[in-house]
């Protein structure tokens, strides 16, 4: 028996919004520690990793490990039927071929349940080593979204360059060149408005705008986003999910042919 109840159901709605453009199907791996998802997009350029810890749920029961393969477009359609203040419960029997989503209004006067077929997905899991990154940049998530949106008008790629002075985002194309520089903030009233840079060595990497734009669908999840970079390895773009987990996107860089 698997059952996970989340009073703050809108977190789950937001997680799905942040995945559905990048992935069409994926497996949710459930264990007594929580729920995890790892999947690459169809072209294997990016990878998404989601963690929802058991202690972040208001009720969590998972008697035996199970992997629930889901069509994320269908799951997203179902979660859109939940109101933002609904309590969401996900339920499945052991070795079941379907999953049930229950949406309760806060006053318990409306209860809806939706059943969805599970899929058998044979997905490749990648081992992601713990890495000390050369540069770790934290900035407001909305600012990052705006930068990527603005620079996407200029070309297909964004160059992210981090030095101790700050971080620079650049794009070039037929209409010209765009550069956006962010300095580390000296002092801010609110922590979530800060730009902070922890740098061991300067790093410059080039990434496809298309994917960065899809990652910014997670902006609704958290006030801040963390970018971790090292020379010639995938970028990590991380958004926290409340205090129960995270969505991490990994993006393979573009390198000299």
């Amino acid at each position: 028996m698997f059952e996970a109840r989340l009073v703050q159901g809108n977190l789950l709605k937001k997680v799905l919004e942040s995945l559905k453009d990048l992935l069409t199907e994926a497996s949710w791996d459930c264990a007594d520690t929580g729920i995890q998802l790892q999947a690459m997009d169809n072209s294997h350029v990016s990878l998404v990793s989601v963690q929802l810890r058991a202690d972040g749920f208001d009720k969590f029961r998972c008697d035996r490990q199970l992997s629930m393969g889901m069509n994320l477009t269908s799951m997203s359609k179902i979660l859109r039927c939940a109101a933002n203040d609904d309590i969401i419960t996900i339920k499945a029997q052991d070795q079941a071929d379907n999953v049930t989503f229950v949406f309760e209004s806060p006053n318990q006067e409306k209860v809806a349940d939706y059943e969805m077929k599970l899929m058998n997905l044979d997905q490749e899991h990648l081992g992601i080593p713990e890495t000390d990154y050369a540069a770790v940049i934290k900035l407001p998530a909305a600012e990052f979204q705006r930068i990527i949106k603005d620079l996407s008008q200029f070309g297909e790629s964004v160059v992210i360059s981090c030095t101790k002075e700050g971080v620079k985002f650049s794009a070039a194309g037929d209409i010209g060149v765009g550069n956006i520089k962010l300095a580390q903030t000296a002092s801010v009233d609110k922590e979530e408005e800060a730009v902070t840079i922890e740098m061991q060595e300067p790093v410059t990497l080039t990434f496809a705008c298309r994917y960065l734009n899809m990652f910014t669908k997670a902006t609704c999840l958290a006030p801040q986003v963390t970018l971790s970079m090292s020379p010639e390895v995938p970028l990590v773009v991380e958004y926290k999910i409340g205090d129960m987990g995270h969505v991490r996107y990994y993006l393979a860089p573009k390198i000299e042919d």
Binding site: M40, V45, G127, V233, K254, E256
Partner: peptide, 14 residues
């Protein structure tokens, strides 16, 4: 010109 790399180029399957 720069070429897009693949995720499997960096991380191995488990």
């Amino acid at each position: 010109s720069k070429k897009q790399t693949s995720m499997t180029h960096f991380f191995a399957g488990t």
